[in-house]
């Protein structure tokens, strides 16, 4: 099941602006270091990557380790090439892929 996400883009941009993009996904980010009440290791399950593409270009890629907090949040930047659509793909250890699209409005 895809996880709940939140993406924040500026409401208004112009071509050439450098904008901040914020992306969050709800995820437990289980480290694999913890044990349950019976002493069994709780298997690792983290979001291990976020890939952001605009058009055919990957503008940003994050690889996360277990040292990233639950509900991983990341803020990064992008120079606005023009109107278009940003595609966010999160991948977790369990093989779940969460894909979210956000329009980039220009003008």
């Amino acid at each position: 099941m895809a996880n709940k996400t939140r993406i924040k883009l500026p409401d208004k941009t112009a071509v050439g602006d450098v904008i901040e993009i914020r992306a969050l996904i709800n995820h437990v980010m289980e480290t694999g270091n913890r044990k349950d009440a019976n002493g069994q290791v709780i298997p690792r399950d983290i979001v291990n990557s976020l890939t952001v593409t605009f058009g055919k270009v990957t503008v940003f890629k994050a690889e996360f380790g277990p040292g990233i907090s639950s509900n991983p949040f990341v803020a990064f930047h992008m120079r606005v090439p023009g109107p278009g659509e940003l595609v966010f793909v999160w991948q977790d250890d369990a093989g779940v892929q969460t894909i979210e699209r956000a329009p980039l409005l220009v003008g």
């Binding site: 503008v59 994050a62 690889e63 040292g67 991983p72 803020a75």
Partner: peptide, 25 residues
């Protein structure tokens, strides 16, 4: 931390600004 590598970020010129933030353990 038990795992040293917390995160790795890949940028390109179109990223515009080399600045990344987030939350770590």
């Amino acid at each position: 931390n038990p795992q040293a590598v917390v995160a790795t970020f890949h940028l390109i010129p179109a990223t515009g600004k080399a600045m990344v933030s987030g939350r770590m353990r």
